[in-house]
């Protein structure tokens, strides 16, 4: 996003957005701006408040406090059908009594678009998701991936400025999910509209997004590009949730690193040395014993129990060393610059 002197209002602005269910704050004073044409992901475990935020933007939940602005207009109290956003629901919510074509044309029908134009635009939207050949089927006759694409077509046919996607790939198997990720990204680029994508799958969020907000307990604990989130986690929560990390806190930090605080290092940044004492300047080394070696195809994950206490995970090329037996005594090391200092949030 480039900041201009006369910058237009953001696609979405959330100001102090709060949602309390009874006494529990599902969303707790959220401030967030999402730009036009951005692919924005909300990442977090279930119950972290990300879906509630999405439902408030869609108009299905009323916030307890705070405001929602779409392109500068306050829509906080507006009904879903008066908002220029559309949702792709987690379970797709296709109308079972309508054909695929009528499902897609639904938004046009309720807007009073003529029958012939409805047909043309529905076909066009179905073609975008490569399903125009199934227009006469009922949703029940489609596979999960096809239903997913119908839901997408139904949402984009009304040309929203913002598309909300609630775990849209959650019900698909791995292969289909990876394929749909690519299609989603391409669709977002070609439409040029804002996508707000809710997921608990960190890999999905990192792969697709321009920016990612990591949620925990109703708050954003880190906001940034996928690179920033992955390479520079701010706190122990993000380091633990996004990817695998070796996290050292308290006594462990003191024992391994010789200093207090909270730190993380990615498994792929840790090396198992062939010979002890070979490590160079600027690296931190520790002795340990190999507890387990896990084959990952081209790579392997090695768990090493350090003499000083904690266990450390190493990911290395499969043939990087001659032997990798359990019980073998080794030395691990990592560069000082790969070590991230974190805020310890418990």
């Amino acid at each position: 996003m480039t900041a201009q002197t006369m910058s237009p209002p953001p696609a979405i602005a959330l100001e102090g957005l709060t949602k309390r269910f009874d006494d529990v704050a599902a969303v707790d004073g959220l401030d967030l701006q999402i730009g036009d044409g951005e692919f924005f992901s909300m990442l977090g475990p279930s119950g972290s408040g990300k879906t509630t935020v999405l439902r408030m933007i869609g108009g299905f939940e009323q916030p307890t406090d705070g405001r929602i602005l779409l392109h500068g207009n306050d829509v906080t109290g507006t009904a879903p059908f008066d908002r220029d956003v559309n949702t792709v629901f987690q379970d797709y919510a296709l109308f079972p009594h309508l054909s695929v074509r009528d499902n897609v044309a639904y938004g046009l029908k309720v807007r009073g678009v003529s029958r012939s134009e409805r047909r043309a635009r529905a076909s066009e939207a179905l073609a975008k998701v490569r399903l125009d050949h199934l227009a006469d089927r009922r949703p029940q006759q489609l596979s999960g991936g096809q239903r997913q694409r119908v839901a997408l077509a139904r949402a984009i046919v009304v040309q929203p400025k913002v598309l909300l996607l609630d775990e849209p790939l959650g019900a698909l198997d791995l292969k289909l999910r990876e394929q749909m990720q690519v299609e989603l990204k391409e669709l977002q680029r070609s439409l040029g509209i804002t996508f707000i994508f809710v997921t608990h799958d960190q890999e999905e969020a990192l792969t697709l997004s321009d920016r990612v907000a990591v949620f925990n307990a109703g708050k954003i604990v880190q906001l940034g590009t996928p690179e920033e989130i992955y390479a520079h986690p701010l706190n122990t929560y993000v380091a633990g949730f996004v990817g695998t990390s070796n996290i050292f806190t308290g006594d462990d930090a003191q024992a391994v690193l010789g200093r207090p605080g909270a730190f993380s290092v990615r498994p792929e940044d840790v090396r198992i040395e062939d010979r002890a004492g070979r490590h160079t300047e600027g690296r931190i080394a520790a002795d340990g014993t190999i507890a387990e070696t896990i084959y990952l195809g081209g790579r392997q994950r090695v768990l090493v129990d350090l003499t000083s206490g904690p266990r450390i995970t190493v990911v290395e090329a499969h043939d990087s060393r001659d032997t990798a037996g359990r019980g073998q005594t080794v030395q691990v090391s990592f560069a000082e610059r790969d070590l991230r200092e974190l805020e310890d949030v418990g």
């Binding site: 108009g59 059908f81 949702t87 919510a93 109308f95 938004g107 309720v110």
Partner: peptide, 11 residues
């Protein structure tokens, strides 16, 4: 869900 989807699409 279906009613939410309908409202979402402008009905």
């Amino acid at each position: 869900n279906l009613e939410e989807a309908s409202a979402d699409l402008g009905a």
